[in-house]
């Protein structure tokens, strides 16, 4: 897993609520056997017409907006457990998603892939959407060690919650498998005690 510690970037705003994983990546694109390449089908049915021409009004087709931070409406990532949703965002170049509420499985999947979901209050989210609307190039700074997100233009800062273990993983690029492999003996002892 790639490390993520500090990040400064402009944002892509997606002010839609209840974005489900079927919309992030539809089931018909789950047939790949690697983790790469899902970015091209990210938000496929919102991004392209059925004849594969881009929908001009969709945010990802608007060159004004770019960056590695996606800012989305509440309840982002609900629905199916497909990790492909996190992979497609990551493959597209997104490293941080900021919203006021995340679905539980998506949040776990994202963290397991070095994609940081940041939960902020509704007021801060609204403020951020407004700032992006004023200036699409507004920079947002994320610090994993400090657990803060800061809007450069206004200096507004919010701290966010992050499980201490998960924080360590993100900063060091460790994943859960590294940890679980490191406690192999404990697992074997547990198995032995069950027999």
């Amino acid at each position: 897993m790639e490390k993520i510690e500090l990040l400064k970037s402009s944002c892509i705003p997606l002010p839609i609520e209840d974005v489900d994983t079927d919309q992030i990546i539809p089931a018909r694109f789950l047939k790949a056997t690697t983790k790469e390449g899902f970015g091209q089908n990210l938000f496929r049915d919102w991004r392209y017409h059925s004849n594969d021409t881009p929908k001009e009004d969709f945010i990802l087709n608007n060159s004004i907006y770019s960056g590695s931070i996606l800012v989305a409406g509440k309840n982002f990532g609900c629905g199916s457990s497909r990790e492909h949703a996190a992979w497609s965002l990551y493959d597209f170049g997104i490293r941080v998603v900021i919203s006021s509420f995340f679905a539980d499985i998506f949040q776990g999947n994202a963290l397991n892939n070095g994609l940081l979901p940041i939960t902020v209050d509704d007021a801060f989210l609204d403020h951020l959407f407004q700032e992006i609307e004023k200036d699409p190039r507004v920079q947002v700074e994320v610090s994993v060690p400090d657990q803060t997100v800061r809007i450069s233009s206004t200096g507004q800062v919010r701290s966010f919650d992050l499980d201490p273990y998960k924080k360590l993983c993100l900063i060091n690029g460790y994943d859960d498998i590294d940890y679980l492999l490191s406690i192999k003996e404990k697992i074997e002892q547990f198995e032995f005690s069950k027999i």
Binding site: S81, R82, E83, H84, A86, I105, G108, N109, N112, N113, D163, Y165, D175, D176, I177, Y179, L180, L181, K184, I187, E191
Partner: peptide, 20 residues
């Protein structure tokens, strides 16, 4: 319960999952 693919890998590798 259902899990994501990283967790599938965790269980294949260690027969365990890290959960809250």
């Amino acid at each position: 319960f259902g899990i994501g693919t990283s967790q599938v890998e965790q269980v294949l590798a260690t027969q365990c999952l890290l959960l809250s």
